[in-house]
């Protein structure tokens, strides 16, 4: 398995873990986690912190193990895979941003309680969208590299 395939597998597994952690935090937090800005901020910051630390540690570990091909440039097949992954990732990110804006806009338009008007909901939506976008990026690239479609 090449260095890039190892990185993609680690990214995919990392994102699955982050989705599980986020859902668990939201379930444990209940109503407060969904509507309270401070609670939502805690969830988002802890997920981002975990993601950055795990990402850096995993990449250092992989680079140490497979030091041979870490500096090789992407060949044409890997470039195509990266483009496909980026396309899917961008589509999901854009959709999530639009959904978050529409959700907030509708709440403002049709009136909502003070807590419903907080940015907690859109913030969590953006977080989950970001993780799903990264997961789809890695997943689509792996699918292309192994299946060739």
């Amino acid at each position: 398995m090449s260095y890039r395939e190892q990185v993609l597998w680690v990214d995919a597994l990392l994102m699955l873990g982050l989705i599980g952690y986020t859902v668990k935090q939201l379930l444990l937090g209940g109503h407060e986690a969904l509507f309270n800005m401070e609670q939502a901020y805690d969830v988002v910051s802890s997920v981002l912190y975990m993601a950055i630390v795990a990402y850096v540690l995993c990449h250092i570990a992989i680079a140490a193990v497979s030091s041979k091909d870490t500096e090789e440039a992407r060949d044409e097949r890997e470039q195509q895979a990266a483009q496909l992954g980026a396309y899917w990732s961008a589509t999901i990110s854009q959709t999530t941003i639009v959904l978050a804006l529409v959700q907030f806009g509708l709440t403002v338009q049709f009136g909502g309680t003070r807590e419903e008007l907080s940015l907690a909901h859109p913030l969590l939506l953006l977080l989950i969208g970001l993780i799903l976008a990264e997961l789809s990026n890695a997943g689509r690239q792996l699918w292309y590299l192994y299946r060739g479609v």
Binding site: S2, E72, D75, E76, R77, E78, R147, G148
Partner: peptide, 22 residues
């Protein structure tokens, strides 16, 4: 050729059609 071993493997297995240059 200037590609990765995995790309040669994919071409051999018919999972990837290379560019004209490759």
């Amino acid at each position: 050729v200037g590609v990765t071993r995995q790309t040669i493997l994919a071409i051999e297995a018919g999972r990837y059609s290379p560019s004209l240059e490759v």
